[in-house]
């Protein structure tokens, strides 16, 4: 059950944060907003014809992207480090329709040691499952994150500070 409490993902400390999945300032992106949901997090997904596949059908890659996005962010919030997807498996049960509001919920196994494993499920307004996904993720050290991402020193410090807050449970 969603508690409705909005979640600020750590990337929002970056002035020019453009994540395709969750940045509010990427006009071409999905602009997903996450809220707490039990031990996991959830988001609402409703897309227009920009992300269409067959007429009226949401492109399957978008559904997979949403699942990857929410699972990755859940693990970042739990672990307090950046994570990178290593495997991702999606099972499509029924197509998503353009303009319909779906719910996506992510949960994760215990995050004692990597690789971390997470699950996502997209359900329709009647609660029927449309998509399931499972992914595994590897954490990145600050040095690895710095090497893989295009960050200035200031931006790297901002991100690491936000992640450190998560590790301290703030």
């Amino acid at each position: 059950m969603s508690t409705g409490t909005p979640i600020d993902v750590p990337w929002r400390v970056l002035p020019d944060y453009r994540c395709f999945g969750c940045s509010p300032s990427n006009e071409h992106g999905l602009r997903l907003n996450f809220t707490h949901s039990g031990d996991g997090i959830e988001c609402v997904l409703r897309v227009d014809r920009t992300f269409e596949s067959y007429p009226g059908v949401v492109h399957g890659g978008i559904a997979t992207t949403v699942c990857d996005e929410i699972m990755g962010n859940l693990l970042v919030l739990k672990v307090g480090t950046s994570v990178f997807t290593t495997t991702l498996r999606t099972r499509y049960l029924s197509p998503l329709a353009v303009g319909v509001e779906y719910r996506c919920v992510a949960t994760a196994d215990a995050v004692d040691s990597p690789p971390y494993r997470a699950y996502a499920e997209i359900t329709d307004p009647d609660g029927a499952t449309c998509v399931t996904a499972v992914g595994t993720y590897q954490p990145a050290t600050p040095a690895q994150a710095r090497e893989r991402m295009d960050l200035t020193d200031t931006e790297a410090d901002l991100i690491e500070s936000a992640l450190a807050d998560l590790r301290r449970g703030q």
Binding site: R91, L93, S94, Y119, A128, T129, T132, V134
Partner: peptide, 9 residues
């Protein structure tokens, strides 16, 4: 398929 997904999980 939904049953299969639940079995997998």
């Amino acid at each position: 398929l939904r049953a299969v997904a639940k079995i997998e999980r």
